[in-house]
Computed example of a mutant assay.
Amino acid sequence: MKILIIEDDLDILKNIAEYLELQGYIIDIATDGIQGQTLAEKQSYDLIVMDINLPRLNGFQICQQIKRVSPRQPIIMITARDQLHDKLQGFSMGADDYLIKPFALAELHARILALWNRCYNLAGQHILTVADLQLNRQTYELTRQGKKLKLAPIPLMLLETLMLASPNVVSRSKLEEHLWQDSPPSSDSLRTHIHQIRQIIDKPFPHATGLLQTIHGVGYKLCN
């Protein structure tokens, strides 16, 4: 999950960012409203956490503008404003959740997971299935036709992303960003990992449909 945090209190920002990075999330940060809005417009985020009292542009304004362009963008507001009218204003601007400072980082994480599951309908989706290929997202056990398969961590992450998107195509750039953020290695690295996936999920099953497909000039998809 890629998360944008917009917060002008540097201590709070550092604590949240470090905690969420330890949970395995990709984190971008902004310390004022204009910077935060610019990042939200130019990049794709699974979820945004933002303060309300921000320099240059406040959280209410950012939230309203983001939701106007991307109505389904999940947003959690974090603020010391604990009055009912502040909460109501936040929700009226499109916020999906509202957390009062000070808060426990574990509670923020729980709210992130709950909102992610609610927005992307992933609650309970522990078993991903494409044709006769299955991936357990809790144990990361991978099987096809009941046979256990083993993939290295990076190809397994790629496969999970493709299974979540199936039957849609995932672009090369999206896959590279998911794995390596802003510092992708050589162009052959992704191709090598895709080849490894094919060798494990398709090659041992010559009488079954090849699941991993290359869409030339675009990216890859998994479908029957």
Rank of each mutant, 00 (worst) to 15 (best):
M1A: 11
L4A: 08
I5L: 12
I6E: 05
I16R: 00
I16S: 02
E18N: 10
Y19P: 01
L20F: 06
A30R: 10
D32P: 06
Q35T: 15
K42G: 00
Q43S: 14
P55C: 11
N58Y: 13
F60M: 04
I66T: 03
R68F: 04
P71C: 11
I78G: 04
T79I: 09
T79V: 09
A80G: 15
R81N: 13
R81C: 03
R81P: 01
D82E: 12
L88P: 04
Q89Y: 05
S92I: 00
S92E: 14
M93A: 13
G94D: 07
D96T: 07
I100H: 09
K101R: 14
F103R: 09
F103I: 09
A104M: 08
A104Y: 04
L105F: 03
E107R: 12
E107T: 12
H109V: 06
L113S: 07
R118I: 06
H126Q: 13
L142S: 01
G146I: 02
P155N: 04
L156T: 03
L158G: 04
A165L: 00
P167A: 03
N168P: 00
K174H: 04
E176C: 11
Q181S: 09
D182H: 12
S183R: 11
S186H: 07
T192I: 14
Q196G: 10
I200R: 06
I201M: 04
K203E: 14
T209C: 02
T214P: 04
K221C: 15
L222D: 02
C223W: 00
